[in-house]
């Protein structure tokens, strides 16, 4: 009993500690935090509020206005390597993806129905002064 309690506590602690090192701030870009990009995913469209942003922490607020479950992916320029992803965005929900990105070309994709290539579009990240 003591052992399992100890193990549980260790897991909880490990999770919290790893989270501290592996999180990204959610404070606005103006104060050196994440820049917010709103993504609207529907059955046939994936609309980003901006497609050219500065490097650093990006915060995608993905809103599902379709009727199927959607996912949002940020791919590297090869369109294969996942830079960031958020799953299980049910209809009517908004979920966040916070990801640190360097300057370069990226590809975004919404995947209504959770399958296939998704609805893809470009995202250009420029070198920003604060980074």
């Amino acid at each position: 009993m003591k052992t399992s309690l100890f193990a549980l506590a260790s897991i909880a602690l490990a999770l919290t500690l790893s989270a501290c090192g592996l999180t990204q701030t959610n404070t606005p870009a103006a104060s050196g935090g994440a820049q917010e990009i709103t993504v609207t995913s529907t059955e046939d469209a994936c609309t980003l509020s901006e497609t050219e942003v500065g490097s650093g922490n990006l915060s995608f607020r993905v809103r599902n206005e379709g009727t199927e479950v959607t996912e949002f992916y940020l791919y590297a320029s090869d369109g294969l390597r996942i830079v960031g992803e958020v799953e299980n965005i049910g209809p009517g929900l908004t979920r966040d993806l916070v990801v640190g990105v360097t300057a370069g070309d990226y590809i975004t994709a919404c995947k209504p129905g959770m399958a296939g290539e998704g609805i893809r579009g470009p995202l250009t990240v420029t070198e920003s002064a604060q980074n």
Binding site: L15, S18, A19, L22, T23, Q24, T25, N26, T27, S59, I82, V83, G84, E85, V86, D96, L97, V98, V99, G100
Partner: peptide
């Protein structure tokens, strides 16, 4: 105030 990075969530 903070979000988990994508890599961290997948790794967990």
């Amino acid at each position: 105030p903070r979000r988990l990075t994508f890599q961290a969530q997948e790794a967990i």
